[in-house]
Amino acid sequence: MAAVLANPIARRLLRIPPSYLVFLVLLATLWIARPNMLNLNIMGIFIRQIVPLGILVLGQLVVMRVKSIDLSGGGIILLINYFISSGSFPGASLPFFVALALATGLAIGLFNGFMIGNRRVSAVIVTLAVSIILVGLVQFLSSGNPPGDVPKLFNDLYNTKFLSVPTPVLFWILLTALVWLLLSRTVFGRYVASVGENAEAAHFSGVPVQRTVILAHTLAGLIASIAALVQTGSIAVGSVRVGLDLPILAVAATILGGVVFGRGDGGVWGPFFGALCFALLFVVMTVLGIDEPGKLIAQGVIILGAAIFYGVRVRTT
């Protein structure tokens, strides 16, 4: 096996993020099983559903590039959903809610970043603990019951279309392009890449490692709050369960997209297709009649498979 992996052509092929391949396989499966589903309208609806996941992936890939992880997205989404739907801010306008959401995400991201970058606490522990605290608080505040309704404007915005493509999807593509520019064209992007490759070497080359990690986490918190706004628009009601499985799906999509801790071979578009894979996966599983337990197993197998794929490759190079 090692000989095969050492082959230059095989190595070149292994550089392609698994998400592209999985996407094609899923597309083919769907084409064989339900060819009539492959039209722009239906696919638009399915893809629109995973836009919150897709946005969350953008934050996840930035922190995973600096060898960290952010699992607090579920808590952030739940908290912002609670803010908007609980009626604690009667008569508040859309800009107010957007500002509130972004400030919340920024603050939580900054806290994560401080704990991880400055206090050097394990990122998994910090972000999981933050998520648990936020979920516990929201469930306590709403006494376990879903809070009220979301202002109608959110859902109306979510349902708009531009040239027959749903606006949320366009928004997602725009954000992805922005993050791509950030990582490939700015100093911060270079810092992220160098910290991920080798934090010690980066430190001795004058890269502010700690600041980069803190900034990456702050950015992830901010992006999670944007995902929360889109998610709230999509379900249009308050919920005490929404978005709790999104962070782990985001990790899966990011790994599938060829970004593993410290290595960013998949760029930004690999994880983008990783998120698209999950859109198709859920459709395919629903079509094949596989329900929730099967989806859990599929998530686990995908994460493990993609991680093994990269683990094997790292060892041989």
Partner: peptide
Amino acid sequence: STQYIVLG
């Protein structure tokens, strides 16, 4: 990942 597989 094993957590998810086993839970499923």
